[in-house]
Nucleic acid binder design. Structure first.
Lengths: 335, 335
DNA sequence: CTGAAAGCGCTTACAG
DNA sequence: CTGAAAGCGCTTACAG
């Protein structure tokens, strides 16, 4: 039988109100009484029931985090950041894998709301009007990660993907690359679209035309990257650079390039996005755009909690753009 | 203002009891009444409050999962399996990173219990008496993953690490390797100790002596693997094989071996453990022992939920040993 | 400084 | 088939 506040009260010869006060560290309790209650708690092994408390105070100290897939290292880094930070503020995390499916997002958001999460962090590859409507109807605090509402109605923390891709491409063009292929996600979505926009902008500024047939869309995986690379190489067109929308694609590209006898970076340069920890341990080491993933999770959690606790102006600093870092490694020639 | 069961009752001109019955699909409600309630629910946008429900029925449909670090791909695969399976049974997951610290384990387990989790999945690198005592005092259902209570008092799902390491080593010896070095975790723990036991057993059976100075313990990371490899190579002793306790160590070893001019596998073979998805995409592809990580998570979740719901004999099938798979790839010579 | 009591939003015997 | 009422384990005005 679980011991409850009533049992402690009996043991300490006080009322449940008094026990509640010492449990919650409310100061107006006499030292002696407090000590008696503390002793009773220790003796009985009492642990407060957070569910009952939550019902009463209308707050669960639990936040939901919706991500496409926790087994993707990109997302697990974000979750790690969110988890560590949440814990500092005494919040816990309910983890939801959405597989980027909007039906699942809707269904699972309902579950989170029924469980009375104080807020939710939404991490995704895309942000569209359906998602926006869904999240706005939720009437609980929301912070987006990796994506943003471009109308600025919802808080978000992310990097500037357009700019990052633009600068990456500009740097690459400066290094002399001009026959550019791109490997992207067949599913599209805000993140890759923004990156594509940045790449095309830089190309256009340099008067470089990117052959549409060299923009390959496939599954966002090692295999997808390998297949798209094969298609690019098989086209017989001149290609000296493949820009991939993430590191998995780039690793698949690396492997396929080698298998087709291309030397990276001498014959062909390859770049990724996100900069997994593994990127600098493979050979050749992979050039990539580093996103501060842990920080995205951590900052999103803090922003959310501050909103929940009304600790700062709700309208202030709604969208937080974090710095990225372009890292050139062996998969790109020095000049 | 959130709409509650009372509001729906008013709207449908029935009692809250009736609304509760239709929400919970309890059959003894008249079809007409039911329809009226359903309409009222739709009209008001009512969502049941799971916290209130949990308090009443003494069940939260939430399980806690304690793992060392979600950003480690090994653990994120396990969590993914647990998440997907939990969801099938309508359970959610509260995620806790423990950093393998027993203070944090204790502290966070208390939080999980206060939040009235119906059960917890404990994933770790070690299982000792402190942990056992902690978990047994918890008086909630527990399933271990990756480790086990060798007295068999707690349910567990894992591979046979002794046997896996034994067979790996036996196979390697059969391939002709005899100057064996080992890279392990300085922190020890059940998992690596079991693996070490298996390796030493196979070596002993083959009358191979493993030089104690070639058993290097360091941090369980790429860098740790690199450093330990440096120490092994710098010892000047003959080494034709390094067995690493996980793939991160092995990747660090691979890199360091190359940097020191060793050709893998011609001069030196390297093997890992766990078989990350990346292992077959790096060069040379890494030989490793595959653990069914997703399945460990998935099965642990199912076992736990069945225990919670008393759906099967609590004493039956307490420890589930899953198959592993030794995968030889380019980092080991064919013969 | 302390306690009696109401109430958080549900579920479920019990009575009809 | 339906409703009134008790109760899940807490917190917190209110009164003293």
């Amino acid at each position: 039988m679980k011991v409850k506040i009533k049992d402690v009260a009996k043991e300490a010869h006080v009322s449940v109100a008094t026990v509640s006060r010492v449990v919650n560290d409310i100061p107006l309790v006499n030292e002696d009484t407090k000590q008696r209650v503390l002793d009773a708690i220790k003796k009985t092994g009492y642990k407060p029931n957070a569910i009952a408390r939550s019902l009463k105070i209308q707050k669960t100290n639990t936040i939901g985090i919706m991500i496409p897939d926790i087994s993707d290292p990109m997302y697990s880094d974000i979750v790690r950041g969110a988890e560590v930070t949440s814990e500092i503020y005494k919040y816990n995390i309910i983890l939801i894998d959405t597989d980027s499916s909007s039906e699942r997002e809707k269904e699972m958001l309902d579950v989170l709301l029924e469980k009375q999460c104080d807020g939710v962090i939404y991490i995704g590859k895309d942000f569209n009007n359906n998602t926006k409507e869904l999240l706005e109807r939720a009437n609980c605090e929301v912070v987006l990660g990796c994506v943003q509402d471009k109308d600025g109605d919802i808080s978000a923390v992310l990097i500037d993907n357009v700019e990052a891709a633009y600068n990456l491409t500009k740097d690459l063009i400066q290094k002399g690359y001009k026959n550019i292929a791109i490997i992207t996600d067949e599913k599209g979505g805000q993140v890759v679209e923004d990156r594509l926009e940045g790449i095309l902008k830089a190309a256009k500024e340099a008067d470089i035309e990117i052959d549409k047939s060299l923009i390959q869309a496939g599954r966002l995986s090692l295999n997808g990257g390998a297949k798209s690379t094969k298609a690019i190489l098989d086209s017989g067109k001149d290609v000296d650079l493949i820009i991939c929308m993430n590191d998995q694609l780039a690793m698949g590209a690396l492997k396929m390039a080698k298998e087709n006898g291309r030397n990276v970076p001498d014959d062909l340069a390859i770049t990724g996005f996100n900069d997994y920890w593994i990127s600098e341990w493979i050979s050749p080491t992979l050039s990539s755009v580093r996103q501060p993933l842990y920080d995205i999770g951590s900052i999103a959690a803090r922003m959310l909690i501050k909103k929940i606790e009304n600790m700062e102006d709700k309208e202030a600093d709604n969208v937080m753009i974090l710095p990225y870092d372009i890292r050139f490694r062996e998969s790109v020639k020095e000049n």
